[in-house]
Design a binder for these strands. Structure first.
Length: 507
RNA sequence: GGGCCGCUAGCUCAAUUGGCAGAGCAAUUGACUCUUAAUCAAUGGGUUCCGAGUUCGAGUCUCGGGCGGCUCACCA
């Protein structure tokens, strides 16, 4: 039987069931236990007659029929539980129904728990009901789904067949919830700010554009949360955060998805040192609450997240791993020499690469791969940080840090620039870059400047890629493994579905 | 966008130098009252991603296209 024929056969089976007075998709079911609770309901050393009766529901996997008795497993969100059914306890009608069902069907089962000869806690079915019929077959019960394309496009199949995917989904949820709770426990409030913006900013990235019909205006999907959060600081909110989706119109990779989840946080009357303490605290605490220990294993290596994490200036780190001291090359007149020095170390960079970019290349090429243990690198060059406050006593640097662990950047933070005249100059410099062809350079945001001119408190700010934090904490190798429905090219599955529909019409 | 690799039954995978497209699971039928990847017997199921080309003959070789993975570029 081809898959199209099988689909037709199962649709027919649904009709046949209804004709026989059995509704295959009842509106309501009730259960007393989920699978995990049913397993826990079993009482050791108590005879079966005194065991509790449980009512469970779930997707039937691996039925094993043996003449007048059957075993099967039901899977629900909590896990799996085995069911034992016998013709003489269930009656002919229900037992025949059971034998006609397919792996993947949802089933409701009621009966006492007991222990089989092999020791597995099992529900002895006194009554069963079909509660949802699967019209298409499940993937291979043993091998699951290996094809990554199918796993990403049809995540539901991945979740059914590959338990580690299901577990990772649960972990991500717990990570987000734990971070949220920890921040709230420190007095931060969660806010929501616009996704649709008439001017984009807060990061160096290209936006998605869309159109608002009612106002006849083009709008951008946000690339960062920063500028609205700062308006809230100006408005008197001292401690705030948002966990939200941002959108960047850039390439796909193992570490990049065009829409991803960002945590941004702003803290009035704090600076980047306070933010460092906050980050090491909540990352370590999150790992501790979820895994039971702040020591996690990554690639067979133990990583201890317990605070305090070491702190090193960016200058020292780059000097240590590349031998280049970028502060020895004065801004402007030393830029060309710095570029030459970077090339001598083997960096492939074009002529006239801006100073900030050269330093960033040194960081990602020579330093980042070594940063397995968590560490803060701080004091960044001014050029690439148009929203950060300059360091007292060194106008070439800003009070910015990045946190690294597992050779990935986990967080980016700074003491926020709150001097509106300085901010205006930074926007002007960005506008020059923009004129020179840098499409990602920061827009000149007069509305934001006006807000700042009303007075913004000194503050520390933070950005954390939640997807990358999840990758780090769960050991995922691709961002697609921590995003349930990653971006994919519109592909064959649509066409396949259309073809299926045509084939059915031909039957 | 470049390079490399992959795409065969619903799922997981075979197919020798270019020589009859196969297996397990799933499906259908039957046997079976403690199985758990149940077992046993039988049956059905294919646009080998798509399109050209070479050839007596293409899953296999060549060219073009599609989708995916890895990687480089990009993404501070």
């Amino acid at each position: 039987m081809s898959d199209v024929e099988e689909l037709a056969a199962r649709r027919q089976a649904v009709d046949d069931l209804r004709a026989a007075g059995i509704e295959p998709f009842p509106a309501r079911v009730s259960r007393t236990h989920n699978a995990k609770e049913a397993l826990e309901a079993y009482q050791p050393d108590v005879p079966e007659e005194e065991q509790p009766t449980v009512t469970v529901a779930g997707r039937m996997l691996t039925p094993r029929h043996m003449g007048k008795a059957s075993f099967l497993h039901l899977q629900d969100g909590s896990g799996k539980i085995q069911v034992y059914a016998q013709r003489n306890t269930l009656g002919d009608a229900q037992f025949d129904l059971l034998k006609s069902l397919h792996p993947g069907d949802f089933l409701w089962v009621s009966g006492p728990v007991f222990q089989t000869r092999t020791g597995e806690i099992t529900v002895r079915a006194r009554e069963i009901k079909l509660i949802s019929k699967a019209l298409r077959p499940l993937p291979d019960k043993f091998h699951g789904i290996r094809d990554k394309e199918v796993r990403y496009r049809k995540r539901y199949l991945d979740l059914i067949a590959n338990r580690e995917s299901f577990d990772r989904l649960m972990l991500r949820s717990r990570i987000v919830s734990t971070v949220r709770r920890l921040l709230e426990s420190r007095g931060f409030i969660e806010v929501e700010t616009p996704v649709l913006q008439s001017l984009y900013g807060g990061a160096h990235a290209r936006p998605f554009t869309t159109h608002f019909n009612a106002l006849g205006e083009d709008l951008y999907l946000r690339i960062a949360l920063e500028l609205y959060h700062k308006r809230l600081l100006i408005g008197g909110v001292d401690k705030l955060f948002e966990i939200g989706r941002v959108f960047r119109n850039e390439g796909l990779s193992r570490k990049h998805n065009p829409e991803f989840t960002m945590l941004e946080l702003y803290w009035a009357y704090a600076d980047y040192h306070d933010i460092m303490s906050l980050v090491e605290w909540f990352v370590s605490e999150t790992a501790g609450q979820i895994f039971g220990s702040p020591i996690i294993e990554r690639d067979g290596q133990q990583i201890d997240l317990t605070p305090p994490w070491p702190r090193q200036t960016l200058r020292e780190a780059i000097l240590q791993y590349s031998g280049i001291d970028f502060t020895a090359y004065p801004v402007g007149e030393g830029d060309a020499a710095l570029l030459s020095a970077a090339r001598e170390r083997g960096l492939q960079i074009p002529d006239r690469t801006p100073r900030g970019k050269v330093i960033d290349e040194l960081l990602s090429t020579f330093v980042e791969p070594h940063l397995i243990e968590p560490i803060f690198l701080y004091d960044y060059p001014l050029e690439l940080s148009p929203l950060a406050k300059t360091k007292e006593g060194d106008p070439a640097l800003v009070e910015r840090f990045e946190a690294f662990a597992g050779a990935v950047e986990l967080a980016n933070a700074f003491t926020e620039l709150n001097d509106p005249q300085d901010q205006r100059r930074r926007f002007e410099a960005q506008a020059v870059d923009r004129e020179a062809g840098d499409q990602d350079a920061h827009a000149f945001d007069e509305d934001f400047l006006e807000a700042m001119e009303h007075g913004m408190p000194p503050a520390g700010g933070l950005g954390v890629g939640i997807d990358r934090l999840t990758m780090f904490l769960t050991g995922a190798e691709s961002i697609k493994d921590v995003i349930l429905f990653p971006q994919m090219r519109r592909g064959s599955s649509l066409e396949d579905a259309e073809e299926d529909a045509e084939n059915e019409n031909d039957l």
